[in-house]
Design a protein around this nucleic acid. Structure first.
Length: 117
RNA sequence: AAGACGGGCCGGGUUGCCGCUGGUUUAAACCAGAGGAAAGUCCGGGCUCCGCAGGGGAUGAUGCCGGGUAACUCCCGGGCGCUAUUUCGGUUUGUACCGAGACAGUGACAGCCAGUGCCGCAGAAAAUAUACCGCCAUUUAAAUAUGGUAAGGGUGAAAUGGUGAGGUAAGAGCUCACCGGGCCGACCGGUAACGGCGGUUGCAAGGUAAACCUCAUCAGGAGCAAGGUUAAGCAGCGGAUAGGUUCCCCGCCUGUUAUCCGCGGGUAAAUCGCUGAUGAUUUUUCCGGUAACGGGAAAACCAGAUAGAUGGUAACCGUAAACAGAACUCGGCUUACAGGCCCGUCUUUUUU
RNA sequence: GGCGCCGUACCCAAGCGGUUAAGGGAGUGGAUUGCAAAUCCAUGAUUCAGCGGUUCGAGUCCGCUCGGCGCCU
C-alpha cells in the first residue's frame, strides 16, 4: 500500500464534517487531541484534521495539521477500512513524536485498530 | 581590536527516502512551488459592479517650499523652528546668561491681525484691565487714609521684551546703547519656502485650531464573500407607486405585461474572475539627474491553493535557527524579529 | 479574505479637557437578631486595555499596538 494521501482520501465539504460530528459512532480523547469517526459507505478511509479556534497563529496551525497528516499517512495501513476519521487538535506545543503517541492512543481507545497488530 | 549609535543587506545550506499543489502530459518522467515583513488593514492605485460619475451642500482627508510618482498620510532635495553636544565671541565674582557657527536628532510645520469658545486651582489681576505685599509722596504722635508706582517679592504652565546706564519723590521705553521683536522696500540672492541688506517703529498686549472654525487642495459609492456563467432545488403571500445613483437637494435615467419593500420557502455545488504569463513585472547593464526617479538595451516568465499545497525522517556543517504562511493585485507606512555580514560617525585600548 | 463596533472596580455601567473618576448590584467589616434573611452604616480604581504624542493639564483629543465581538455567501 502506498503511503500517499490523495484528495479522494480526504474529507472536504462542510457536509462531510457535519455528518461525522453529528453521527459519530466512535469517539475518543486524550490530552491535546480528540478523535471522531463514523463508518462510511466506501472501501477506503477518509481523513481530516481540524483545529480548535484558539490554536495559535497560522504557522502553528499549519504545522500541527501537517504533522497529523504525516502520522496518518505512515500508519494508515494498520487501520481497518471504511471509516471517516476526524482528529481535533487542541492548543499546545507538541512535536512529531508526541503527536504520534497521542494518535496511537486515540486509535487504541476508539477500538478501530486492527486486532492482530 | 572592542563597544555605542545610524544606515543597508541576508534570513539556514547540500544529498537520499516517503508524501502534497500546479504545469507539460496516455501514463511514466521531468520542471516549478510562501515573506521581509506574506502580518496589522493605516493610506494610495489598478480591476469589477452600481441604469453614469453633472452641479451644489454636508462629511472626511491633507496642509513650509520645490521635485518624484499611476497615486498617496509615501519618497528625495531644500527652508525654518525646537532639542542635545561642541567651538568661538561677549557679559558677570560666579554656578550661569546672551549671540553666532558646526554636526546630529526631531517637528500633524497653513491661519488665533475673520469671528466664537476655553484657560480649573493658586494669584491683586488670566485677556479685560488691574495695586496683595512692597517702594515713594501727602496726612497722622502712631495706626490709618488719599494718591503715585509694574523696579523688587509672592502665585502660576503662562504676568505685557532682556541687560546696562541715565533719569526720578519712588518708578516706568520715560530717554539712550546693545540684543530681540513688529512693519515697509520698486533693493540683492533663490523657481519657491526663505535668507541677506537698508529704512522705520519704543514695541497696548499671551496661549490653545490633535477647540469650533477660516482658507486652499483632493475625494461618487461599494468591494474579488466585487461581479459573470451553469447546474440543482422551492411556494407563495402581503404591501407601495415610484424606484435607482449606497449621506441630502437639484438634475439625469428606468418604469405600470414594470419596479421596489416586508414576511415565508429553496440552494450552500461547479466554473470563470485566478495568475501559463506581457505586467507601474524580475535580473543584468548603459545614459540623464545632487537624489527620489526617468529613459534605453539584453535576457527571463518566477506560487496559484479552496478543510486550503513546502512537511517528516536520515547524514554532514551549524548558534543542531528569530519573527512568522500568499488567498484578485501593486506602491508605501506601521508593527514583530534569533543570529550573521557590510558601510559611516564617535569613544576606549594596543601597536607603528 | 474583506467590512464594522467595543474595551472604565468582581458584574452592569455614567462621565462638557480642570479638585480626590458618578451610581447600582455583588463582596468585606460593623450595627440589628436567640440565629439568619431583610434593613441601616462604612468600605475599595497603586496604571480608565497598553504605549507614545498634542496641551499648563488627558478616562475624554490624535496616532500605533493588544484583546474581545458582530456582519458578508
Amino acid at each position: 500500500m502506498r503511503k500517499s494521501l490523495t484528495s479522494a482520501e480526504r474529507l472536504k465539504s462542510k457536509a462531510d464534517f457535519a455528518l461525522v460530528f453529528n453521527n459519530a459512532g466512535v469517539k475518543s480523547a486524550c490530552r491535546g487531541a480528540k478523535l471522531v469517526a463514523r463508518k462510511n459507505s466506501f472501501e477506503i478511509n477518509r481523513f481530516a484534521v481540524t483545529l480548535v479556534r484558539k490554536f495559535g497563529n497560522a504557522v502553528q496551525r499549519n504545522y500541527a495539521r501537517r504533522v497529523l497528516k504525516e502520522i496518518y499517512r505512515n500508519t494508515k495501513q494498520d487501520l481497518p477500512t471504511g471509516y471517516d476519521i476526524i482528529v481535533v487538535l487542541y492548543s499546545g506545543d507538541y512535536n512529531y513524536h508526541e503527536r504520534e503517541q497521542q494518535f496511537t492512543k486515540l486509535i487504541r481507545r476508539a477500538g478501530i485498530a486492527k486486532t492482530d497488530s
